[in-house]
Design a protein around this nucleic acid. Structure first.
Lengths: 345, 345
DNA sequence: TGGTGATGATAACACGTGTTAGCAAACCAT
DNA sequence: ATGGTTTGCTAACACGTGTTATCATCACCA
């Protein structure tokens, strides 16, 4: 037989007090006058019954679910490229656990309208959401909802006033490109991680240009090829670069996963990395260290991204007004062998 | 000013009927006698107000949250090895979306006691859970809770009577090993994906033995080395095998990720794959196709795993009694170049 | 002795929904 | 006309909690 789980009424009966008293004790209401002896009895009764308040009842009366949604606005391809998504969730999860909040996962592929997520809010299922990988098309919708409802962007959306957490892509891409420049390369190619309509992609492209400009080098459009999340796209992009009459001596691929495909093409052309062509990736996917040669790349503070996003959102919910902050986390350059500057084996 | 969201009472007022009628209409109660004209008025009012029932209120009165938990019982290392976890979530997400249920993510690292998840159930936050990567230590706990509360295992736990969904590891490992046998190898090594205390690891080891036995070959303990989720562990394991006086001519690595490390060691020893040593992986991690040489491996139906687990759990919840089913999904052999049977480039 | 606070606890309401029992009117058959 | 059935709707309760207003008791002081 199913055991009905104990309610506050049961605790009250066992302790010989009213249900109100139970509530006052267990919620530690500051200015409630309860004698030490009664308090003790209530606590013991609750412990003996192993009482836990019913989340829905609490939600109903308090107006808070203590749940937030993590909306994944990515194609399967992107999720696959986002190899560090589990890390993000881990950071986020830690923050939530400390606050005793919970996380609802809501996959929302780009062919679905963003309106579907508003159901979560209208049904009061969640108190706020983190939108991972916002898209340009979402702007109008966000503009309407973002003012009254807590939303934090993970990734960036140009022109949006919503608080967001992201990596400093421009700085990171510039840093990676500068490194190749310092190694003496003058013809440096770029393979993007995605079409430029994606903010992250655009910003990395910007960083690449910025580094070239600093070095007094012209921007050569033919040296830029476009990837689209997958290794296959990287393979095709690299092929285009290698077929140039005057191919680059180094290529910055703005995604490790795309770089895997690029590397495959390089091998197919019989070229050696880094001797014939230096390669630099982006993301520091866990497997990059195990490529041949190990891939130099840019490391993202994935766990911190999740943590910061969670803290920002909780702050908004608890304080009632949006923090105007935009957080940009710094990245780190990971030098391995593929760029030609590597140390040991 | 925050707009108070409309309740059923508002709809009732606008339609000029009682709240009860609104509820009867919107829930399509079968034997409720409502005139077509009234029904119409209610529907219009609800649409005009954009009314959505409050999930918590519904939950409270119905006794159902329509949320299930996905408990990730993995170390960070394992999650990293579980590169197809996003795929699992996608399959699961589709099933839930169709049923209008939701998914709560609950990370539970192995150093936390499983009891923590019971809070989710005691607070009635979820109606059931999918335990991904159950551990031996969880058995006692599952035995107590699993009888009264819906839990589906993703992965397998020996001796547990709970419904589970998993890959047929024995068959899969035997298939992989058989393939190497058919290529003429007689000294075939095994590098496990994890210690044998992990069921999946144990079963793959079993399949390996089974295939050897079928072929009339003795089981040679020295040819078995133990990995532990990471490439580094694979590198170390392979090193041990290569240092043998009579090393194997082929190695089955029961995890692609571990195989990456193994491959690195092979290279370090100046050996070629597959000419000097044939290699076979397991999991078909997305990047395996882009290794040098592309890794032959076993493909897991990740999306189906999630889908089946979701369906099983929903069935249990809706029918009120546990399905005694244990679902074992078949795998597929992916032949690339690393085992020496590969076709073109 | 009567008034004033402080102390300790509770009755009663609210949150928003699903559901059961019942009521009034209309309809039908005898 | 009368009694029974069907039709269309609603009042009232339940779910489990947080919170406010109120009540009883007792101590204290003038």
């Amino acid at each position: 037989m199913k055991h009905r789980s104990p309610t506050a009424k049961d605790v009250a009966r066992l302790a010989g007090v009213s249900r109100t008293t139970v509530s006052l004790v267990l919620n530690r209401v500051p200015d409630a006058r309860i004698s030490a002896e009664t308090r003790q009895r209530v606590l013991e009764a609750a412990a003996r019954l192993n009482y836990r308040p019913h989340a829905a009842a609490r939600h109903l009366v308090r107006g808070r679910s203590e749940v937030i949604a993590f909306v994944m606005r990515q194609t399967p391809d992107q999720i696959f490229a986002d190899a560090f998504l589990p890390e993000v969730l881990r950071g986020l999860g830690e923050v939530l656990r400390e606050a005793n909040w919970h996380l609802l996962i809501f996959p929302l592929s780009p062919d679905q309208p963003p309106e579907e997520t508003t159901l979560l809010l209208q049904e009061r299922r969640v108190d706020g959401m983190i939108l991972s990988g916002p898209r340009f098309e979402d702007r109008e919708w966000l503009e309407r909802w973002g003012q009254e409802t807590p939303v934090v962007l993970l990734g960036h959306l140009a022109g949006s006033s919503l608080p967001s957490v992201d990596v400093d892509n421009v700085q990171a891409a510039a840093m990676a490109t500068r490194h190749l420049l310092q190694l003496g390369h003058r013809r440096i190619g770029l393979i993007t991680n995605a079409p430029l309509s994606y903010t992250a992609s655009y910003e990395r492209w910007l960083g690449y240009r910025q580094a070239l400009e600093e070095a007094g080098l012209p921007y050569d459009e033919t040296l830029v090829a476009f990837g689209a999340f997958t290794p296959a796209s990287g393979a095709a992009a690299m092929e285009r670069l290698l077929k140039l009459p005057n191919p680059p001596t180094a290529v910055f691929v703005a995604s490790d996963v795309v770089a895997f495909g690029a590397l495959q093409t390089i091998r197919r052309y019989g070229l050696r990395v880094p001797q014939d062509l230096a390669l630099m990736g982006f993301d520091d996917v866990p497997l990059s260290a195990y490529l041949d040669p190990p891939l130099s790349t840019v490391r993202l503070p994935a766990q911190d991204l999740g943590r910061e996003a969670g803290q920002l959102l909780l702050r908004w919910i608890q304080e009632g007004r949006p923090p105007t902050t935009t957080i940009r986390l710094a990245t780190g350059l990971i030098i391995r062998q593929s760029c030609g500057a590597g140390g040991g084996t």
